[in-house]
């Protein structure tokens, strides 16, 4: 771990001021990802700004009927909050599919959005990686890429975003509230993370000096027809090979609204409005789900070891939509996949 200064921010404005004053500074809340990367010398902040005591822990109903979640709410508190369990069970399920109970107790909602890729080459400072050291190239491209991206990749990076929570937030149409030197702004969760392009070192569109203050969920909750299905190499405590968040509104067997997002396949949670539109007004059948899957996976490309992910994702999408349609969401504890 490198030498760094430590400051405790007294409020959001103080955090922004400290961030702006020191371009090498980083915010720390739960620390579950940042400390890990600092121990690997992947992250070498000049200063840690401790925001863990800022008053960003509220979960409040918004005037419009949605929910505003403070950026420092621990993942577990969010998953088990009555509002989330009852109104946004897709989000609760996705959170509980990630990490471990201990890590969920530590990790903040804002930090979850900021977690970095688990690509082995990104983690190993002896190998080239353009995300870690811009311009050095992508070792995964011709290396061990079994768990790398199949969508939205660039010639510079094929890393994936490892978050489960973000996949559900993408499907639910969440907004990210941000405060910064030039005031406050909000962006859609789906616009928060970036594709790697020629700047793979940038994971998100968060500007310098900016801090996530809250996540906002819109009123539409999908309490009945939803499911989060995570496929991985062991049955718990592992990152997704593919994960699917699906949510439907049904009138009889007809789909009036559909949401669909993928995790583990791209540099960001992968959502396609076209795929969702194709489901609206259709019957909830495997054929229609398969068509939506094809649309969502349009343009998927495989590397040397991750070709299986395309077919796996397709099947997982159909299955998750079936679970959602039949109101039998995947349990994160009981591992049999209905």
């Amino acid at each position: 771990m490198n030498n760094f200064d430590y400051s405790r921010a007294s409020d959001v404005a103080d955090a922004i001021r400290l961030l702006t004053a020191d371009p090498g500074a980083k915010l720390i809340a739960g620390g579950t990802n940042l400390i890990d990367l600092m121990k690997e010398n992947v992250e070498r902040p000049s200063r840690l700004i401790d925001i863990s005591r800022l008053p960003l822990r509220a979960i409040e109903e918004t005037a419009g009927g949605g929910l505003r979640i403070g950026a420092l709410v621990p993942n577990s508190d969010l998953a088990y909050h009555p509002f989330i369990e009852q109104r946004y069970p897709l989000l609760a399920s996705a959170i509980l599919a990630g990490a471990s109970a201990q890590l969920r107790n530590m990790a903040s909602v804002g930090g979850n959005l900021m977690q970095r890729t688990r690509c082995a080459y990104f983690y190993d400072t002896t190998t080239p990686c353009s995300k870690r050291s811009p311009g050095t190239g992508c070792s995964a491209m011709d290396g061990l890429n079994r768990n790398h991206a199949i969508l939205g990749t660039s010639q510079f990076c094929i890393a994936t975003n490892p978050s489960d929570m973000s996949v559900a937030l993408a499907a639910l149409g969440a907004l990210v509230h941000i405060a910064g030197p030039s005031g406050q702004r909000s962006i859609a969760l789906t616009d928060f993370h970036r594709l790697p392009g020629d700047k793979p070192h940038l994971d998100t569109n968060l500007g310098s000096g900016e801090i996530i203050t809250a996540i906002e969920l819109p009123p539409q909750t999908f309490v009945r027809n939803y499911s989060y299905l995570k496929i991985r190499d062991r049955l718990s405590y592992a990152f997704a090979l593919v994960s699917v968040a699906a949510a439907l509104e049904l009138e009889g067997n007809a789909i009036s609204e559909a949401r669909l997002a993928l995790g583990g396949v791209a540099h960001k949670p992968w959502r396609s409005l076209e795929a969702e539109a194709a489901l609206r007004g259709k019957a909830a059948t495997p054929d229609h789900f398969g068509h939506a899957a094809d649309l969502l996976l349009q343009g998927a490309t495989a590397g040397s070891h991750n070709g299986f992910k395309i077919e796996l994702a397709r099947r997982a999408i159909v299955r998750t939509l079936m679970q959602a349609a039949s109101a039998t969401p995947q349990s994160q504890a009981h591992k049999k996949i209905a």
Partner: peptide, 21 residues
């Protein structure tokens, strides 16, 4: 998880927790 302790009653990984915080 070998480093699990309870901080204010909640289980956490003490290896990813800075003591100053």
């Amino acid at each position: 998880g070998a480093c699990t302790v309870l901080v204010d009653g909640r289980r956490v990984n003490s290896c990813l927790t800075l003591a100053v915080m």
